[in-house]
């Protein structure tokens, strides 16, 4: 008891230990990033020029490779000109944590460069809508089909071999096709999310359905359940908690298709923001936007998990068993 066991096989840690580790899992990468950013001797492969000296092509604020800078200094020392001065710096694509933190705020408050461009929050909202519709439409067909395939062999045989084949076709490959059919705006993007999610969804849901304890079906049969009530009163309530977990995981996958989907047709949403900012070399904004996707994804998942505990009060049983 007194001695804390951090490495017992498959034993859950104490809540306090878990909490510490959860925090650490975020702190550790942040520490590495901070170290690389704030300790010049660690990496900093560039020199940021503070005074160009007699080197013709250097300007204040310019980033040059350190060996180039040193070579120029050495040549000047021999020929006896004014030496350039500079400080060690990281490449522009690796902003420091505080710069990204500031960008989190400024990205929302900076006005778009052109009149017809969108604010960041508008772009984010576009992305969320694309995800939502893609996932919603996929679930609308995929979940019932998966449940039916998991319940009736005839539907499984009829659909699953083709679905199995189709899921190997990479969703982005359908990009050009989707644009040709659905135009350049939201529709083809939603279609890509749909294609990326749907086929996995059918297979995962049918598998989950098959994992239902068959003795529950047998018990229902001996209690006089007919075919319809077997499906609606046993199969569906019996898998609903696992189904909910599946959908949470699938929603995560849908996000991974978002970037590709948004590049199709006219680039839009958070992807448009990211590519735009990368073009202006505002990498702090790029990092901030990428992290926002992570934060939105993680927050929805946590909220859905909380919600699940509320709507499925018998769920703790599964966790304990």
């Amino acid at each position: 008891m007194a001695k804390r066991q951090w490495f017992s096989v498959r034993k859950p840690l104490k809540p306090k230990q878990r909490f510490v580790l959860t925090i650490m899992s975020f702190i550790l990468p942040l520490l590495v990033w901070s170290a690389v950013s704030y300790l010049p001797f660690l990496w900093h492969p560039k020199m940021e020029v503070t005074s160009p000296g007699d080197v013709a092509y250097l300007k204040v604020g310019m980033l040059v490779d350190r060996d180039v800078f040193e070579r120029e200094s050495a040549t000047l020392q021999e020929s006896g000109g004014t030496l350039p001065e500079g400080v060690r710096a990281n490449p522009v694509y690796l902003p420091a944590p505080h710069e990204v933190a500031i960008a989190f705020y400024t990205a929302f408050t900076t006005e778009p460069k052109r009149r017809n461009e969108k604010w960041l929050h508008e772009s984010l909202w576009d992305s969320i809508q694309v995800i939502f519709w893609g996932f919603f439409l996929s679930s609308l067909i995929g979940v019932p089909l998966g449940i039916l395939a998991g319940t009736y062999d005839v539907i499984s045989r009829l659909t699953e071999p083709f679905v199995e084949f189709f899921r190997y076709l990479p969703a982005p490959a359908f990009g050009a096709l989707a644009v040709a059919i659905l135009g350049i705006h939201e529709a083809p993007k939603i279609a890509i999310i749909f294609i990326g999610t749907f086929f996995q969804q059918v297979l995962i849901v049918s598998n989950t359905t098959r994992k239902l304890d068959p003795s529950l079906l047998e018990a229902a049969l001996t209690l006089g359940a007919d075919r319809l009530s077997l499906l609606f009163k046993v199969v569906i309530p019996g898998i609903i908690t696992d189904l909910y977990k599946d959908l949470r995981i699938l929603l995560g996958w849908a996000w991974t298709y978002l970037i590709v989907a948004e590049l199709i047709g006219t680039s839009s949403g958070i992807t448009w923001f990211i590519t735009q900012q990368a073009r202006y070399k505002n990498f702090d904004n790029v990092y901030a936007a990428i992290m926002m996707i992570g934060i939105i994804g993680l927050t929805t998942d946590i909220l859905l998990a909380r919600l699940g505990k509320r709507i499925f009060p018998w769920e703790k049983a599964a966790a304990r068993a």
Binding site: D213, S215, L216, A219, P237, G238, T241, W314, A318
Partner: peptide, 9 residues
């Protein structure tokens, strides 16, 4: 049945 086949939900 021997296993408890109550409907957990």
């Amino acid at each position: 049945f021997q296993g408890y086949t109550l409907f957990p939900w």
